[in-house]
């Protein structure tokens, strides 16, 4: 048992064994409470809700490791979704072809990357506080969206778009596959590439990183640009799932993405954070949500439990050393 825990810790981070334990406990608990919990239908419902939140959380993760934050994740996702919708509508709406879709996806990703890069540049070159810069970008992008859509939604997409959002491959929903793929890429990016290395270093100490020859400003800009691309991917997935785009869709998820990152052990002071524990945290949040749903609670109660859950985890994490000190005192 200890060997398994050691192996998990080594390959995925210190947070993982605890989170896995929690997940197992939760699954056991909910299975006992509701016979529907361990069914394919429930798995499907988890797998179809997870990707949006998951992709957005990945987009939030990288800036937090760089000791920043991206409060514009939802806004970037929306504006990218709008870009795709706009391209589809230009090429005939419901009659648009695959090629139009592909072009729209590329354009949407580019718009997301551009919005992120602009935000990153303001942070890196002007030294603006990430909270303020991304907040301003959020307001601005939402503004553009509202201006272009007049507050309404855009719908009327080809059949295959819906198919993408609701289809399955080998029994796994397509959005879930996209999320797993994105998470894996993100893991590679953060844990294995030079850019990921730089992000961690810069997140801990940008000055020392610069003295060691890292291109700090470029890395920060790239971090937000890639975050923007990930937001765009989320926006595209949202479009395929709901078959419509509206500014403000998913706003409630903004702070949940931050919550998921912290739950996944990401250091709030930057420098440390891994995809695997955050992935687990997301699965836990979604399992909690669907489990509560099955025992008769609604989404709002889940939100409350998520918040309380984060408090409990943080208190435990910060309290553990204190508890040890206390116990040591008592023993003495």
């Amino acid at each position: 048992m200890t060997r398994i825990i050691d192996a998990m810790t080594r390959s995925f981070g210190r947070e993982v064994p605890g989170l896995v334990g929690l997940l197992v406990l939760m699954i056991v608990g909910f299975s006992l409470a509701s016979p529907q919990f361990l069914t394919g239908a429930n798995f499907d419902s988890i797998a179809s809700q997870l990707p949006e939140l998951g992709l957005l959380t990945l987009a939030m993760l990288a800036p937090i490791i760089a000791n920043g934050i991206n409060l514009a994740v939802i806004a970037v996702a929306n504006i990218s979704g709008l870009t795709l919708a706009w391209v589809l509508n230009m090429y005939g709406g419901p009659d648009a072809g695959m090629l139009a879709f592909a072009a729209g996806v590329v354009l949407a990703l580019a718009v997301g990357g551009l919005a992120g890069a602009a935000m990153g540049a303001i942070i890196a070159w002007f030294g603006a506080h990430p909270i303020l810069a991304s907040l301003a970008m959020m307001i601005f992008l939402k503004g553009i969206g509202e201006f272009l859509t007049r507050g309404g939604d855009i719908s009327g997409f080809p059949e295959f778009v819906m198919g993408l959002g609701h289809g399955t491959v080998a029994g796994i929903p397509v959005p879930m596959l996209i999320f797993i793929g994105a998470a894996f890429l993100w893991h590679l990016l953060l844990a294995r590439t030079r850019h990921g290395f730089a992000v961690s270093m810069i997140g801990s100490n940008p000055k020392a990183s610069e003295y060691s020859g890292l291109h700090v400003k470029r890395s920060i800009t790239l971090t937000y640009a890639l975050s923007g691309v990930m937001c765009a991917l989320a926006g595209i997935v949202m479009l395929t799932r709901f078959n419509s785009v509206r500014v403000g869709h998913g706003d409630a998820l903004l702070l949940v993405t931050v919550l998921a990152c912290f739950l996944g052990g990401v250091n709030p002071f930057g420098g440390f954070g891994r995809v695997a524990p955050v992935f687990l945290a997301l699965v836990i949040l979604q399992t909690l949500s669907s489990g509560l749903n099955l025992v008769g609670a609604n989404q709002h109660l889940s939100t409350a439990v998520w918040g309380l859950f984060l408090i409990a985890v943080m208190v435990l994490r910060s309290g553990t050393p204190m508890l040890h000190a206390l116990l040591a005192n008592i023993r003495r």
């Binding site: 270093m201 801990s204 100490n205 020392a208 003295y211 420098g271």
Partner: peptide, 9 residues
């Protein structure tokens, strides 16, 4: 401490 090494890493 602040320029030579990234102490936390």
């Amino acid at each position: 401490l602040s320029l030579g090494l990234v102490q936390q890493q």
